[in-house]
Amino acid sequence: MTEHKNFVEIPFQYRYQCWFCAEPAADAFTFPDQHHIVLDCQHPKLTIPSCVECTDMAKQAAVDSIWQVQRQVKKALMKKYQKDLAIGLNWTEEALANAGFEGGNFAGFQKSAWFMYQVAKARLNFMGWPLVVDGIDVVTEEGRNDFQFDGVCYPSLEHAIDHFSRTFSLDSGLLKQILAKLGKENFAQAVRICRLYVGATPDEKLQALRTLSS
């Protein structure tokens, strides 16, 4: 990897890893640079180690800070791994190993699915290390809106809602309304209720909401 000015300090245990996702870092990303029109960046120009994929994602982020770039990269990874993350919702490692797919059309799926789920989860959950440039700490932005549930760190509650709605064919509008009543800390309960109303009529869904209000 080429040396860059303003390269962040890299802790020994992360010396070969991408700051965005912890995959091997074969590239580097500088922010801000000629790819970005930044009007209000509150931190100095810096360069971080990154993998080629995250670098490409990061260059597309039209934002004002490295922390906002990080969130955009996580959203892109979430989209890339939609199906792989769904493995962890529908299977356990043991159930997948004992699924009896050996020799059939799903043998390849059985062999690689849990590994891909672990890769997706690890890349999404990795939040980098504290950034230091020339001995000066780059202060983390306040107001992060990550949402953690069942061992996965989603870029936001909205992304978690979208992921579960796609995976289980849920009515995302109903899920949002239930969460508004129960609170995001009861996300699992809200999803369970929504799964009971897959294919339900509008009146049935309305009655479910009324029940929660009573």
Rank of each mutant, 00 (worst) to 15 (best):
Leu39Asn: 13
Met1Gln: 07
Leu46Ile: 08
Glu53His: 11
Lys181Tyr: 12
Ala113Asp: 03
Thr140Arg: 05
Ala208Thr: 07
Gln82Met: 10
Phe20Ser: 03
Ala28Val: 04
Thr140Gly: 03
His35Cys: 08
Asp64Glu: 15
Gly173Asp: 10
Trp114Met: 02
Phe115Asn: 13
Thr55Lys: 15
Asp64Cys: 12
Thr55Asn: 14
His159Lys: 10
Ile10Pro: 00
Glu93Val: 12
Gly128Gln: 04
Leu175Cys: 05
Glu102Ile: 10
Gln118Met: 09
Leu212Gly: 03
Val139Arg: 07
Arg195Cys: 14
Glu9Met: 11
Glu158Gly: 05
Val152Pro: 00
Pro44Lys: 06
Ala188Thr: 05
Gly199Lys: 02
Leu170Asp: 00
Phe109Met: 02
Asp203Pro: 02
Asp84Arg: 01
Leu170Pro: 01
Ala180Pro: 03
Arg123Phe: 06
Ile193Glu: 05
Glu158Leu: 04
Gln42Asn: 14
Val73Glu: 03
Gln68Trp: 08
Gly88His: 04
His159Leu: 14
Thr55Met: 13
Lys45Asn: 15
Thr55Ser: 15
Arg195Pro: 09
Tyr81Met: 04
Glu9Tyr: 14
Glu142Tyr: 14
Val132Arg: 11
Phe106Thr: 06
Ala26Ile: 13
Val191Phe: 00
Arg144Tyr: 05
Asp27Tyr: 02
Phe109Asp: 03
Asp64Ser: 06
Ser50Leu: 07
Ile37Leu: 11
Gln118Ile: 08
Glu23Trp: 05
Leu77Ala: 08
Phe168Leu: 01
Met1Leu: 08
Thr92Arg: 13
Asp171Ser: 03
Gln60Cys: 05
Leu170Asn: 02
Val191His: 04
Asp27Phe: 06
Gly199Cys: 03
Val191Pro: 01
Arg195Asn: 15
Ala26Lys: 11
Gln17Asp: 10
Ile66Ser: 08
Thr140Gln: 11
Thr211Gln: 15
Gln177Leu: 13
Phe164Leu: 02
Glu141Met: 12
Ala113Val: 01
Gln72Leu: 12
Lys75Arg: 15
His159Gln: 11
Trp129Met: 14
His43Trp: 15
Val132Tyr: 06
Val63Thr: 12
Arg166Lys: 07
His4Tyr: 13
Phe20Ala: 10
His4Met: 13
Pro11Gln: 06
